[in-house]
Design a protein around this nucleic acid. Structure first.
Lengths: 218, 218
DNA sequence: TGGCTTCCCATACCGAGGTATGGGGCGCGG
DNA sequence: CCGCGCCCCATACCTCGGTATGGGAAGCCA
């Protein structure tokens, strides 16, 4: 029963995987927050503003196309450290830095760490808007691509250990016979696992199966 | 005969595909050129220096792991424009910018355009050395990966049009029967093309063939 | 304990791919 | 002109993968 519920929740979240994009703003200056929120919402971009990185982390990173507008200098965790933290958490949200205290070394550091832009204040609002919308567009595409992978990954979870063993062999282009030998079992049993795995992954063709296998990272 | 010669030349170039790395330096200041060349050669890195981007283009981009140390401000074509030019020519040499006239906007522009670093003068020599060696290491790996692709690509050149048609179908996971229907020919003929293509690509297994097919971009 | 999953094995049959061996037609270049 | 490569077709045979239908053994949990 519990597992059924979990499955349903996953289904639901999968359905909304390509939802409306969201702009995240972290800046300690209330005026800047308000002004940016106004700007983004004036072009119908949903926006969430935060005073600090800690506050943002509390809300968690939502599962939708995001773009983070991040002040470089912040009380508590600064922009660059936060960028590093997100990276460590495997959260690859595109980041646009904004700052009143820009210098070349910092900007280069931020960009090398994967920021998509770095705007010294003052900047033209349109400039920020362009960068953010472009990022959201590409994020949207990534999200869709990721959706397919998640679907496959969910299918893959139902695979038994033995089945993944067999699939590893298949991916290497081995014959059932050879796989059987390597695993120390019969070819017939390999066939069982293989076809069972094929059913679970809903693969009609070998090509399809191979694609899904390396999508699963097996 | 001519084609045999060509084939031999290709063989030869393929053999040397993962040669020693090379540092390219473009700077209009003779002192800088000399000093950088000394530095790189002191750690046994082969180095080629140029006074202008035009001069470098004349020599062509060598087929080996490269890293370009590029002055931002140059007589003639400037650093940023040159970066754009290389991009248009599909030459993805990693670029480290060095400049005495650094500003944030320029550095960000350079990084967004794909530069791997941006060092305002004066910088510590060791810093540049670290960046360049790191770049050369990753380039070396890329080069090796590309080698395998080139090998396959060469094999792929001997494929007849019809054979690639069939392979397209195989990649889509179609049955020979279906491929035959789509091409308006018999299943038997499809088998012929398929096995012939398999021989040419030296693929023993289906998995192997599929890998090579998308390596060929079919 | 009984029921569940997982893993293992076997026989038999079918459809698909691979190969070998026949053949014919077309176009291009020595 | 003839040879060569490409494209097409056919028959026959073998192997491989997929499936169906039997079964047995071990572990886990209500």
């Amino acid at each position: 029963m519990a597992t059924v519920r979990a499955a349903l929740v996953q289904e639901a979240s999968a359905q909304f995987t390509s939802r409306q994009p969201l702009v995240l703003v972290v800046d300690d200056d209330p005026d800047v927050r308000a002004s940016l929120q106004d700007m983004f919402e004036s072009v119908s971009l949903e926006t969430a503003v935060f005073e600090s990185t800690a506050e943002m982390l509390q809300h968690g990173i939502p599962d939708r196309p995001c773009c983070l507008v991040l002040d470089l200098r912040l009380p508590g965790t600064g922009g660059l450290e936060f960028q590093a933290q997100l990276r460590e958490m495997n959260q690859f949200v595109p980041i646009v830095f904004i700052t009143g205290h820009a210098d070349v070394a910092t900007s280069v550091r931020a960009m090398k760490a994967g920021a998509i832009d770095f705007l010294p204040k003052p900047f033209r609002q349109q400039e920020l808007l362009d960068v953010v919308s472009h990022a959201l567009r590409t994020e949207g595409e990534k999200h869709r691509d990721g959706g397919e992978r998640n679907t496959v990954r969910r299918l893959g979870e139902s695979l038994t250990p033995r089945e993944t063993d067999v699939l590893r062999g298949v991916a290497r282009g081995l014959l059932n016979k050879q796989i059987a030998y390597e695993l120390g079992i019969t070819e017939i049993t390999v066939k069982m696992h293989r076809s069972s795995a094929g059913r679970k992954l809903k693969s009609i063709s070998v090509a399809d199966m191979l694609r899904k296998i390396d999508l699963l990272g097996i």
